[in-house]
Amino acid sequence: MKSQIKKIENYIPEEPIESVKERLGLKKLVRLSANENPFGTSPKVKEAILKWNFGEENRYPDGYASDLRNKIADFIGVIPEKLVFGVGLDEIITMISRIFLETGDEVILSKPTFSEYALHAQIEGAKVIEVPCLSENGHYDFEGFLKQITNKTKVIWVCNPNNPTGTYEEVSTLKAFFDQVPDNVLILLDEAYIHYVTKNNSTSFLPELDNYKNVMLLRTFSKAYGLANYRVGYAVMNENLANYMQAVRLPYNLNSLAQVAAIAALADQDFINNSVEKTRIERDNWEHFFKESKIKYYSSQANFVFFNFPAANKLADELLRNGYQIRRGLLKDWLRVTIGSEEDGVKLRSIISKNK
């Protein structure tokens, strides 16, 4: 066994909803801890799944995901060869770490950010360098990143909007930072929550990607598209990097139903726009509440809000007793709440007010 594996703590996934309800004697539990889309999935997905040829269960799926590949490539305006698919972004992150990291390499990331970046770096024996976010607003400290770059730096992770802070970095800000990163350092730009950015019309770094051969952009169908259970993620990159990724990608990694679901979801942009608008309205309600209540929070452009609360675990327990599960343990005295329905938001904010 690799010595570094012995030092890694097991990832503890969300406890199943029915299990939590039974354990706590709850009639209802609203999970607002996993950044899932509370507005569900496009009805076109169910229609497409039911039309699938269920006589093909004994056949392997299209290992190249040809139809899905071509439709996404056409939708985002790239050639199909630039795309690599994974079973959620989890598999993409695993592939990246396996290919590009060796023992002794250094990986730079923000603190806090998505935990799997560090996890897979540690599995490969790389050293993780954490740069705390700017305490006043939760944004990336890119100057701090630049100071940490050495000849051992192999990978830099940027999650935009960042999970769990929800903060969004402008394309111009990213370009200014990327221009100062050496070409031999791979920059991973995770845009899992990019669909929720509403502050301007040009939100994604995708149009700039061809200008940076060392930048890889990641997307998922698990959030705005509401396909978390189907596990579909993909990365966009130059063809040279894509060839390396394809070399280690497991064959037939994306099953046929997942491909069918993603194609149907992609076609229903009205569902995406509706989900994003409802999220924006309720996100504004949350931020107004935090501002009026003088509760510190980071302004979010994602489908969640990160806020500071003394005795955070006590509040999380109280919310759970009332049937609401939110995310704890990401940073001391901080909690992350996924944006839900307006009705649930009203109830949650009432409970928080009573526990101030």
Rank of each mutant, 00 (worst) to 15 (best):
P164S: 10
K147H: 07
K199E: 13
C159N: 13
A242Q: 08
D141Y: 02
S172H: 10
F221V: 03
C159S: 15
L241M: 14
W157F: 15
C133A: 07
T165N: 03
I129N: 14
N184G: 07
E130K: 15
F221M: 15
T150Y: 08
F205E: 00
E136R: 14
C159L: 06
N240F: 10
E136Y: 12
G233S: 06
S135E: 14
H139A: 06
N163L: 08
T165I: 09
R219G: 00
K127P: 02
K127C: 03
Q246C: 05
T173Q: 07
L218G: 10
I187V: 15
N229W: 06
R249L: 12
Y168T: 07
D179Y: 10
S135A: 12
I187D: 00
R231N: 14
L146E: 08
I156V: 09
E130H: 14
L189K: 00
K127Y: 09
Y212T: 13
N137D: 15
A176F: 09
P251D: 08
P161V: 14
N238C: 01
V185R: 11
H195L: 09
N163M: 11
N214W: 00
E169C: 06
L186D: 11
Q180T: 05
Y196T: 04
L250Y: 09
L189W: 04
N201P: 03
N214A: 00
V171G: 05
Y212H: 11
F221A: 01
L217M: 15
D183G: 11
D179W: 04
M237W: 01
I194N: 06
